[in-house]
Each structure stands twice: as structure tokens, then as C-alpha cells.
Computed example of a mutant assay.
Amino acid sequence: MTTATVPMCAVVHFEMPYKDCERAARFYAAAFGWTHQFLGPDMGNYLLVNTAPAGARPPMPPEAALGSINGGLFPFHADWPMQHPSVVIGVPDVRAAMQRVRDAGGDVMGEPMAIPGVGEYVVFRDTEGNHNSMMQPDMQPPACKT
């Protein structure tokens, strides 16, 4: 099968587990300003999160009306740390965001790594043990308003 015959299916949502719903909601609100809505037992105790204000994303073509995010794959190396799926969160100041993560109860894994032409990148662990990362792009991302 060639790539021309495979439709491009966009990523439209992310999910992470939590062990303590309130703790997780407080962490992401304090570290990244996310808002949340707890859906309760009738909806499987799901916690919806909003990561950007309305209108922060650029307009999408009609075929992408649901929106999308881009991603990437990296080679697995058993002897490297943090070999887990993660979400990359755009931040305007990676060092300030690192401090907010620590203040909110998370752990930052090392120092930011400069990715030429892309920005500064660092991995963190949230209060629920999920491994994610932050990126201070060379340009401020539109979804990250200060």
C-alpha cells in the first residue's frame, strides 16, 4: 500500500491517566493555566481539559474542521530515560514553566535541551506519574498566550 492510498488521520485529542483527579486538575491549572471540567460518575469520572483559549488556533481548512495537532516519533533506546508516549506543551518561557511544574508538585527531568531551529525542550513528570514535555519554541506558539 502506498501513502497516497492511506488517508491522513489527524490527532484530535490526548488522554493521560490520573490517580488523584483533584491533584491532577490543580497541577495542570497551576503549571500551565489549563481549565478543566469534571464530568462525574455518569461519564466515567472523566476530566476534560482545555489547553488554549477559544480562537487561539489558526483557522483550519474544511476537511480539518475538528482541528488537529502534529506529532513525531523517536527511536526507542532501552538505556535512555523517559521512553514513554507524551504530550509536548508549548510554553513562552521554559525556565519559568519548569518552576511552575515544580511548584505544582511535578518533577522536571534535567535541563532544557536546545533543538536548533525549533526551541528549548525539557521532560517533566506530573503529579500522576505521567511523563510529558515542554517546548519553548523559537517563536511563541499561538496557543500559548501570556
Results as ranks from 00 to 15, higher is better:
E111R: 06
V49P: 03
W34K: 13
Q99K: 11
A30M: 02
D126Q: 13
H36M: 02
A4G: 04
M1N: 11
S86P: 00
H84S: 14
F38L: 09
K19P: 09
C144Q: 04
V122M: 03
G105Y: 03
S86L: 15
K145M: 12
H84I: 01
Q83I: 09
P142A: 02
G67W: 04
Y121W: 14
P61R: 06
N132P: 01
H77Q: 12
A25V: 00
N50F: 05
M134V: 02
Q140C: 01
P17Q: 15
E15R: 04
G67R: 10
P53D: 02
D20P: 10
P81Q: 08
R95M: 12
W34P: 00
L39W: 08
R100W: 02
M16Y: 12
L39K: 09
F27Y: 01
Q83E: 14
V101H: 04
A143Y: 03
D42L: 02
P58C: 03
F124D: 06
V88R: 13
S68Q: 12
N50V: 06
R23S: 15
P92H: 11
R57I: 00
D126M: 07
G105E: 01
V108E: 11
F14Q: 13
C9L: 15
H131A: 09
S133A: 15
A104N: 01
G44S: 04
F14M: 09
H84C: 07
V101F: 01
W80A: 05
P62L: 10
S86N: 11
V101D: 09
D93A: 14
L39P: 03
W34D: 02
V123H: 11
P116Q: 15
V91M: 15
A54S: 01
H77P: 02
P81S: 11
E63F: 10
A29H: 13
T3V: 13
G67P: 04
G55T: 06
V6M: 15
T127P: 05
H13F: 11
A24N: 03
L48K: 07
M16S: 14
G44F: 11
G44L: 04
V122P: 02
L73A: 08
M1R: 05
K19N: 14
R100H: 07
F27N: 05
V94M: 04
G119V: 05
G44V: 02
P137K: 00
V88M: 14
D103V: 05
G44D: 06
G72S: 10
